[in-house]
Write a protein that binds this DNA or RNA. Structure first.
Length: 390
RNA sequence: GUAGAUGUAGCUCAGCUGGCAGAGCAUCAGAUUGUGGCUCUGAGGGCCGUGGGUUCAAGUCCCAUCAUCUACC
């Protein structure tokens, strides 16, 4: 099998390797591949799911627990940390790793997405985005340069280009102008970068327009990023559209660079993404729905508030080896949610992340043994998708 | 014992000079994909304390009665 091993040396002074990605195995039956990302903090196997810890915390859990369940990398967020506590405080703490006590790899999103999804009265110019804080209404401006500057102070291993994530649906000409601006912004991010120990990923945009996606990819590849993200998907479009975009786009993405599908994390989307060659995913779904009492299982969603679990003394998933499933029943978990006890969100967050990280481990093993398609097929026979595909 | 107030959904209460029984919370169910533990959506739920009366029509007006609360003796 084709085995690529390319090390991206970001460190111009020739010091230790700051970032490397290698493809260890490429599936014969699909476009899936096994790989490894190495940062100055650790190395982790791909395809990987990255738990989201927006505000320098994966809500409800501590780092040791994440590490124990197999998380090699987690996400945090420029927009949120800039507003609170501010990048200077985190820098003074010795950087994000030290501040939040996480020794694994870290990735920070650029804040582009949040400026449009959370902030109000935002205004876009070629220079950047002016927006009002969702916390206190104060006015701020993010530019590509500012975003990189903040992300350098935060100190994650992987940082993201400041992009414009357009809503679905969108007019073609609007998509085109946003793709071109995202490219110009990506170049400015590269030029603004001062630190040599962080990998800056570019973000492919283009909505669900195939031509615009390819244009975006072409422009970004010319800039030679150490990794490429696919943004602007899973923003309300039908899943088939997302898969169609991936079908066209993935074969054209650089083979020797990691490919990161942003904001996608329902079990079926993970399978479909991996099959098309995606290496990294992040998603708030497992942690967010956990706090609302929904658990991910191999059979689909279990909404713990449902009355049918009031006297169900069996675990969420008898096969699951997480501490929640080993020690607690659905009836107990339901009780915790009905009485709004804080332990409920915590126990289900623990389970949901364990479920997804374990799913990724199973996926990697299936790829290694050339039985990914069979694994996928078997998964779908017991899995009942609802709502978001979960 | 006397006087006053109050009885409307599981809970807390709206309901005008009589005209199809309402809200919030709770319950039941749905949504959530580069995170506000937020939020959103839908559903079920009523002998209007009880018994009479007036009226075309009473949660609403009148009488009686029961219950609860408060004050006084």
């Amino acid at each position: 099998m084709l085995c690529l091993s390319v090390i991206t040396r970001l460190c111009s002074r020739g010091e230790s390797i700051a970032f490397a990605y290698s493809v260890d195995y490429s599936s014969r039956e699909t476009a899936a591949r096994l790989g490894r990302v190495t940062t100055s903090h650790n190395s982790f196997a791909t395809p990987a799911f990255m738990p989201v810890g927006t505000q320098a915390t994966v809500k409800c859990l501590v780092g040791e627990e994440l590490e124990q369940m197999g998380a090699g990398i987690i996400l945090s967020n420029t927009y949120h940390l800039f507003l609170r506590p501010g990048e200077d405080i985190i820098s003074e703490a010795g950087g994000l790793h030290s501040f939040m006590h996480w020794d694994g790899s870290l990735l920070t999103d650029s804040g582009g997405f949040q400026v449009f999804s959370l902030a109000s009265r935002n205004r876009l110019t070629e220079q950047g985005a002016v927006f009002s804080s969702h916390i206190d209404g104060s006015t701020h401006e993010f530019t590509p340069e500012r975003s990189v500057q903040i992300q350098e102070k935060l100190g994650a291993d992987i940082i993201m280009a400041f992009d414009e994530c357009i809503p679905y649906p969108a007019e073609k000409e609007y998509i085109r102008s946003s793709v071109e601006r995202t490219t110009r912004w990506a170049r400015r991010c590269q030029e603004a970068q001062r630190r040599s120990d962080q990998a800056l990923f570019g973000i492919v945009q283009g909505g669900v327009d195939q031509e615009m996606r390819l244009l975006s990819l072409e422009q970004l590849v010319a800039l030679d990023f150490p990794g490429y993200a696919i943004g602007g998907l899973s923003v309300g479009e039908p899943k088939e559209m997302m898969y169609e975009v991936l079908d066209r786009l993935m074969p054209l993405m650089p083979r020797d660079k990691p490919r990161y599908l942003m904001g996608v994390g329902s079990p079926d989307c993970l399978l479909e993404g991996v099959m098309r060659g995606v290496d990294m995913f992040d998603c708030v779904l497992p942690t967010r729905i956990a706090r609302n009492g929904a658990a991910m299982t191999s059979k689909g969603r279990v909404v713990l508030r449902n009355a049918q679990y009031a006297r169900d003394f069996t675990p969420l998933d008898p096969e699951c080896t997480c501490s929640t499933c080993r020690n607690y029943s659905k009836a107990y978990l339901r009780h915790l949610f009905m009485s709004t006890e804080i332990l409920g969100p915590r126990l289900v967050t623990l389970h949901n992340l364990h479920f997804l990280l374990n799913l990724m481990e199973q996926i990697r093993q299936a790829i290694r043994e050339e039985r990914f398609l069979e694994f996928r097929q078997r998964f779908y026979t017991t899995y009942q998708a609802r709502g978001s595909g979960f």
